[in-house]
Computed example of a mutant assay.
Amino acid sequence: MTYENPYMNGQIWPELNILEILRQRNPLVICITNDVVRTFTANGLLAIGASPVMSECSEDLKDLIVHASALLINIGTLTPDKVSYYKDAIALAKKHEVPIVLDPVGCHAGAYRLSVVLDLIKTGDISLVRGNQSEIKAIYDALSPNNQANTSTTGKGVDGGQVEDSAIIAYRLARLINCPVVATGEEDYVSDGTRVFAVPHGHPIMTAVTGTGCLLGAVLAAFFSAYYPYKNRLSIGEFLAYALAYYGLAGESAVQVSGVKPGSFSVAFMDRLYTLDDAVLMSENHIRPVVVPDQLEVYFISGTQDVELNEHRLLSIVEDACRGGVTCFQFREKGAGTLVGQ
Rank of each mutant, 00 (worst) to 15 (best):
F331Y: 06
A243C: 03
F40R: 02
S55T: 15
R323E: 14
A170M: 05
G259C: 07
I136R: 05
T153E: 14
L45H: 03
T41Y: 06
N74H: 11
E97W: 04
V117R: 01
F40P: 00
L240I: 15
V307H: 07
V158I: 15
P52Q: 05
S144R: 01
G131F: 00
N5F: 04
D119G: 10
V255T: 12
R195G: 07
A198Y: 02
T154R: 15
S316A: 11
S225A: 12
K87N: 07
P200W: 08
V209M: 01
R272Q: 14
G155F: 15
P104Q: 05
Y189R: 11
L114N: 09
Y230C: 11
G124H: 11
F331S: 08
Y112E: 09
G259F: 01
K231N: 06
S84C: 07
M270H: 11
L19Q: 08
T123F: 06
T212Q: 12
D271Q: 10
P6Q: 03
V267H: 05
Y227N: 11
Q24S: 08
Q342L: 01
E186A: 15
C322V: 10
E311K: 10
R113L: 02
T154L: 11
G202E: 09
A250R: 08
L64K: 15
L22E: 02
R272T: 14
D278C: 06
G263N: 05
T212C: 03
F269K: 04
G251D: 02
Y86W: 06
E56V: 09
Y242E: 14
L281D: 10
G160T: 02
A111W: 05
S302N: 07
G217S: 05
G337D: 06
D88I: 13
Q11W: 04
Q305F: 07
I236E: 01
N17V: 08
L281I: 15
S58T: 13
A149Q: 10
D159G: 13
Y247W: 13
E164R: 05
C328H: 13
H203A: 11
T304Q: 09
L143Y: 08
I30L: 15
A138D: 06
A91I: 06
K261D: 06
I75Y: 01
E297P: 01
E164T: 12
A138P: 01
R323M: 08
P229T: 09
A336L: 12
V129K: 00
S134W: 05
N147K: 10
S84A: 12
I18M: 14
T194A: 14
N5D: 12
K231I: 04
L234F: 11
L273D: 12
A198D: 04
D159M: 11
L244A: 09
D103Q: 04
A243F: 05
Y85M: 13
L281M: 06
L276G: 05
H96T: 14
L176V: 06
D81R: 04
A142H: 02
P289G: 13
S115C: 03
L309W: 01
T304R: 11
Y7L: 15
H203P: 13
G213A: 05
Q330I: 00
L114W: 02
A218M: 00
W13M: 11
E252S: 14
L114E: 08
T123P: 13
D278N: 08
G337I: 11
A70W: 03
N74F: 08
V37G: 02
E4V: 03
Q305R: 07
A149N: 13
P27V: 12
E97S: 15
A222E: 00
G211E: 00
V209C: 11
V158K: 00
L45D: 03
D63P: 09
